[in-house]
Design a protein around this nucleic acid. Sequence first.
DNA 1: ATCTCCCTCCGCCGCACGGGGGAGGCCGCC
DNA 2: GGCGGCCTCCCCCGTGCGGCGGAGGGAGAT
Lengths: 223, 223
Amino acid sequence: MSVQAPLRVLLADDERMVRTALRAILGAEPDMEVVGEAATGAEAVPLIRELRPDIVLMDVRMPEIDGIRATEQVLAGMSGPPRIIVVTTFENDAYVYEALRAGASGFLLKRSGAEELVQAVRLVARCDSLLFPAAVRALAASHAGRRAADDAARTLRARLSEREQAVLRLMTSGLANAEIAARLGVGPATVKTHVAAVLAKLGVRDRTQAVIAAYECGFVRPG
Amino acid sequence: MSVQAPLRVLLADDERMVRTALRAILGAEPDMEVVGEAATGAEAVPLIRELRPDIVLMDVRMPEIDGIRATEQVLAGMSGPPRIIVVTTFENDAYVYEALRAGASGFLLKRSGAEELVQAVRLVARCDSLLFPAAVRALAASHAGRRAADDAARTLRARLSEREQAVLRLMTSGLANAEIAARLGVGPATVKTHVAAVLAKLGVRDRTQAVIAAYECGFVRPG
DNA sequence: ATCTCCCTCCGCCGCACGGGGGAGGCCGCC
DNA sequence: GGCGGCCTCCCCCGTGCGGCGGAGGGAGAT
């Protein structure tokens, strides 16, 4: 149950060393697999269409077609497109904004540590929210944010069975397992099973993290 | 620790029977106390200023001054004003909207059951968010919503000590007590103490409910 | 007909969590 | 000086939670 299919990641960066480094970091994670590399935006777009990775780490500055445009093209021309994390060196607000407008699911700085990178990939894969550098949070209120959140909620709904969604919803109401069982008219053991499934599918440790994920994904909305 | 000072509630409704009913319902709760009643808006405003209740249940339709205006006047003329829940018979969107504009913290229908009523009072007392009837949710994205949420976050910040806020913030990151302890550079026992304080002050049962409250209050914002 | 997924439920187990109660040091307020 | 709030930390204890493994039945796909 914990050994789901690994996350298939594609790297798009013009610097070979960066790609090597990313591959090393992500390859060390048992649940991730780098399925392809591209050195330019023009290379990346068809490769992504062919390989259909779960996640793309997309550099902003690339020859021929930059990362923002490549993101646009990928998202425009695919059904069930991958989640794209835009990677850049500088905290340039314009880039962040454009990346969001283009439909990127995440934004990451190259100076980020390995741990942060891995976390970001997992989080985006889990619910494709866009909440990494603080800079993004401020902008998230705009259109791009809403669209991405709705999108996230949809994919989350798709991944969870109906019963699991119901359980998650009740979890986000602060109910304990026994209370959820009473509400749904099933046994406590059944609820435990569903909760375990939700935790596994969301890739989280406990119910608190599940509730957080539900909020961050827009699966539930705060008042 | 669970026996904090009871919530001091004031009732403003022109129908005596309604007041009696509300008093009966709220009086049955060990943590609530009805400290006063008013039959008109004109009566209510000075009474609220004098008694300084935590919560006001304010009817919309009242003689002399209606509930909306009374709400405005109370909030305009007091420091540390009470949280006002506007009560009405009909799901009239205009009323909801006006109530929010006036600064009400909650909106409740008279047809609500006793359970929903006490829940609403507790929730508003806890974090004065505004999320009861589904009708409110739709409007909450507007200015009034933002303002109230900011307000809520402020009062929440005021109630929690600095350390407690830090702990709550880390809780909303999905961290366990031991991890929080590591981040803050203190012992696990200390974190447990802070967590217990947060739970008590928020009036919730466990860390999951605390995280939910934090989101609902706008203490943390989703991506 | 077989396979897979979902829903239902069972046991066992370890542990983090939360409740209760206590304690010492620090600071600011009255 | 005393009192209260905050931060720090300790004990014990019960239990809800989550991990692990198993099981049966029903629906739909191929």
